[in-house]
Design a protein around this nucleic acid. Structure first.
Lengths: 126, 126
DNA sequence: ATACGTTATGCAAATATATGCATATCGCAA
DNA sequence: TTGCGATATGCATATATTTGCATAACGTAT
């Protein structure tokens, strides 16, 4: 969920976390929501995604529904019952959001990389 | 402590938090540590800085000493007693760290600005 | 000696978060 | 009509974090 710490000569690490939230500010879309969506895309069920993330179904379900509430639209089309007991498919809107988030994440990583290098330079100077 | 939320057409905000930690990973230098240092530079006391930050002395003291423990060196030269009851001065090492952090923070802000703009573009596309 | 204001710190109590148990619903298939 | 496996969700419990009370030490000035 958070970045792995980055070492410096000063024995200090830089960590960061990004997350999306709604208008009100209370309630946030956990980063895990996106890894779950990613997994559901392949596995087809929230349960499988939860298991893969070593997380209880209850928790995974909460993360997704919280996110949906904040966003105001559905991330999953959920189906109960049926041959396999049920399944979930990721909505087009969710896919768009997911891909935008992944790009954001990557860009963020790069930015942090550079910013932190400068930081280390400064702290270690002379 | 965290960034103010940023609005998008999708009614989603981006928030982020950065912090420094020590080698072990447990224990972190709160962003507040730096604003406290900044204030102590002017006011000369931790108490004044705590008051200015609308934070209990106990909490401010904890943030600073935690940071010192993680870093392995002193951020403040603290003096008890005396004419004014006591005072604290920011060490040279702390000033260096503070300034590097402030630069990091600023660079980070700019990066996030751009990354988030791209995110909004993507999410809102077509 | 006493008072004052700051630093110093343990620790109990209050809050906030997280965890997961328990139970229900659903729809197909045997 | 019974079983299965996934979705659905309240709620009690557990865990973590925060808060701040209480108390002490310190050094100058009166």
């Amino acid at each position: 969920m958070d970045t792995p710490p980055r070492p410096t000569r000063t024995d200090v690490f830089l960590n960061y976390k990004i997350w999306l939230s709604g208008l009100t500010g209370n309630g946030q879309i956990q980063p895990e929501a996106f890894s779950l969506l990613e997994n559901i895309r392949n596995s087809g069920t929230l349960k499988a995604a939860a298991d893969a993330a070593d997380m209880s179904y209850r928790k995974a379900w909460g993360i997704i529904t919280d996110a949906e509430e904040i966003l105001g639209y559905s991330l999953l089309e959920k189906h109960r019952g049926g041959k396999d007991g049920g399944n979930s498919t990721v909505t087009p809107a969710a896919i768009k959001l997911l891909e935008a988030y992944q790009a954001l994440q990557q860009r963020f990583d790069e930015s942090v990389e550079k910013a932190f290098e400068e930081f280390v330079q400064r702290v270690n100077k002379q």
